[in-house]
Simulated assay, not measured.
Amino acid sequence: MDTLALAKALPKAELHIHIEGSLEPELIFALAQRNGVSLAYASVDALREAYAFTDLQSFLDIYYAGASVLLKEDDFFDMAWAYFEKAKADNVVHAELFFDPQTHTERGVDMGVVIGGLKRACEKAEQDLGISSALILCFLRHLSEDEAFATLEAAMPYRDAFIGVGLDSSEVGHPPSKFSRVFARCRELGLHIVAHAGEEGPPAYIWEALDDLKVERIDHGVRCLEDDKLVMQLARTRLPLTVCPLSNLKLCVVDDMKDHPLKRLLHAGLCATVNSDDPAYFGGYMNANFEACVNALGLNRAEVVQLVRNSFEASFVEEGRRAALMASVDAMLASS
């Protein structure tokens, strides 16, 4: 089995997937019709043509417009189930899904509707597809910390449905320290802590995420390579980075996939992982990201296996499940 075939066949975990970012144009139009929502685009093709992003904000403008069709619990279920079916095809066996409740509650959608639909899809994915999963509630960083506190309070009746909190949306101008108090409260509640940092924002944002928020994972983090001390810290602690290669290309974090820092992150001893971020918008789910990296960066078998092992190491699964997932990698390698 060649390296690319192995990368596609190996079981893997996805740790950086915004479930709203898996909403394909076809489903956007289907849900718009079902819910009587008017869209600014005449067709699926017209919507796809709008996916010419120049930076993070130009993507977010389209992203929030697409989410406007999500109104009922079945909408959230259908969106997540469509993702799980694609994840199954890519041999994803565990997924930790980000969701953005403020994107929906601001439109009058109840928190219980959002979480109820997503949770139902997660349960069906485990039962029917053998994919374990968990939900991570993300605060929108362009909004205030007080609004994040209000979101956390609204989510507390559903505390058993999500395992952690994250921080996403517009990075530049919204440092992690803006949310220090709400993340301290989340730690008191026993929630896992992750945050986007070092995508468009500087390495200083990664330091803030580590020192102020006390994160267990950094989402993106590719700009850490600009700070040697930071790289040494991340390598020493094995604090994971959930890297999203095709996203970085689509949002112009890198100009060419051949320049992507994934291989350098690995060789620096960092616990880097591969993920799809917002695959409906960025041109590919998990295996497409692996394929782009194998082809552009010349990843070898050992590097691919390390990335897959890192995904399980970085996940929030319980130790028995982690050991079983690692063993499944060993079994495939033994037979390939």
Rank of each mutant, 00 (worst) to 15 (best):
F76K: 00
R301G: 09
L137T: 04
K12G: 10
K263L: 15
I163E: 12
M79A: 13
A13E: 07
S144H: 08
S132C: 08
I17Q: 10
I136C: 08
V44M: 06
L27R: 10
T54L: 09
G108A: 09
Y64Q: 15
A67I: 03
P240Y: 04
V172Q: 10
L270R: 03
A324W: 03
R236L: 13
Q233R: 15
L299I: 04
Y158A: 02
E319L: 15
D212N: 15
D100F: 07
A292Q: 11
E96I: 00
L27V: 02
L70M: 13
D227H: 12
V172N: 12
P176R: 04
F179D: 13
P240N: 04
G116Q: 07
L31H: 06
L225T: 08
D259R: 14
R120C: 05
P279M: 07
S328R: 12
E85F: 00
S38P: 04
E123C: 09
E123R: 15
L152P: 01
H104F: 01
M79G: 00
L191Y: 04
M332I: 07
L299R: 03
P176K: 05
L262M: 07
L325T: 04
H18G: 10
T3P: 11
V44G: 02
R185P: 00
E106T: 13
E226K: 15
L60D: 07
K88L: 12
S144V: 01
D2G: 13
F282R: 03
G66V: 00
R48W: 00
G116R: 01
A134H: 05
F282V: 12
F84M: 11
V93D: 09
D100Q: 14
F53V: 06
P175E: 10
W81M: 01
D277V: 04
L234W: 02
A331M: 11
T237V: 02
L4F: 06
F59P: 04
I136P: 04
C122K: 00
N295R: 15
L230R: 15
E291C: 01
A296M: 03
T151L: 10
V253C: 14
Y41M: 02
A134N: 05
E96M: 02
L97E: 03
A292M: 08
A268C: 14
S315C: 15
F53Q: 06
S169M: 01
S132T: 14
E49G: 07
A121D: 11
A95M: 01
M332F: 09
E20G: 11
P11E: 03
V231H: 08
G36I: 02
V109D: 11
K229G: 15
V44F: 08
S132F: 00
L10H: 06
F139M: 06
L137H: 05
D55Y: 11
D277L: 06
I206W: 06
N35K: 00
Q306N: 09
G284T: 09
L97P: 00
S276K: 03
N287L: 02
F76I: 04
I19L: 13
R309D: 03
D219V: 12
L10Q: 07
A82H: 03
